[in-house]
């Protein structure tokens, strides 16, 4: 049995200390230590994108970080986006477009699409494809995911225009 060490981090806005072994990845920590299971674990070596979470405000692979490296960091998982307008719109369009079948890749897809739309509110289809190229889906063939992301961008932009938001400039 590995020795346990304390790690203090901010997780979905709450700062807390947990006990982890040094070799526990951030992904295993989130699912097994904390019980946040929206973060999925696929390949465990950084290729598939299923475990994508936000580290200090940017998407990162939770399987390519040890939890102990998250000491002092700000971690946000899909659970932390409850009530987030952009995420809510993305999720609804993923549903409407059938952008998932088994759902294993969906958390990572949503996290990646969320960051894309934050920095690039009106992306081209090619930009969306490039952005999501690091996330594997073995069900949909990707087109529905790209469609859903573009639809979400269009809805968010329309709302921004209607309310005189900055996206209108």
């Amino acid at each position: 049995m590995d020795s346990l060490f304390p790690v203090t981090l901010t997780l979905n806005g709450v700062t807390a200390t947990h006990e982890v072994s040094q070799r526990t990845t951030l992904a295993d920590f989130l699912r097994q230590t904390v019980g946040l299971t929206a973060t999925h674990i696929g390949c465990e070596h950084g290729v598939c994108g299923a475990c994508t979470v936000f580290v200090d405000g940017r998407i990162a692979r939770a399987c390519l970080m040890f939890a102990i490296q998250a000491e002092g960091r700000d971690i946000r998982t899909l659970e932390g986006f409850a009530g987030d307008r952009r995420m809510e719109v993305l999720q609804r369009h993923f549903h409407e477009r059938n952008a998932l079948q088994c759902g294993f890749c969906t958390s990572g897809m949503l996290a990646t699409a969320h960051q894309l739309l934050e920095g690039s509110p009106d992306p081209s289809r090619e930009e969306v494809r490039e952005s999501l190229s690091g996330n594997f889906c073995r069900c949909t063939g990707y087109h529905a995911i790209v469609d859903a992301t573009l639809d979400a961008a269009a809805e968010l932009n329309a709302a921004a225009v209607a309310t005189g938001g900055e996206a209108a400039c």
């Binding site: 998407i59 990162a60 692979r61």
Partner: peptide, 9 residues
């Protein structure tokens, strides 16, 4: 280089 999530780290 790799993908956006890798380029974050």
């Amino acid at each position: 280089i790799a993908h956006e999530a890798i380029r974050s780290r």
